[in-house]
């Protein structure tokens, strides 16, 4: 299945968001995820199913004023 993560196309066998993040080596702490423009709360990562063509955004802290 193909999904888009931060504008990069990713081919993945993961079925849940948790599995995907883990397979991409993304940190579990200090990040937040939106799927198709909506926040996916951390508590839902395990059961949040992925779908073909889904657009995911993963953000973390950056320097800023």
């Amino acid at each position: 299945m193909k999904v888009k993560v931060n504008q990069q196309e990713v081919e993945t066998a993961a079925t849940s968001l948790s599995e995907l993040l883990q397979s991409l080596g993304l940190p579990a702490k200090g990040v937040a995820v939106a799927a198709d423009g909506r926040l996916v709360p951390r508590a839902e990562w395990d059961r949040f199913g992925l779908a073909e063509g889904q657009t995911l955004v993963v953000v973390k802290a950056a320097c800023g004023g």
Binding site: N6, L24, V57
Partner: peptide, 21 residues
């Protein structure tokens, strides 16, 4: 202390900013 947000770059093992803040 203020912080901004950015997209995580895949495969990037950058230092964790929050640890410094």
């Amino acid at each position: 202390v203020t912080v901004a947000m950015k997209r995580v770059e895949l495969g990037d093992a950058e230092d964790d900013l929050l640890a410094h803040v």
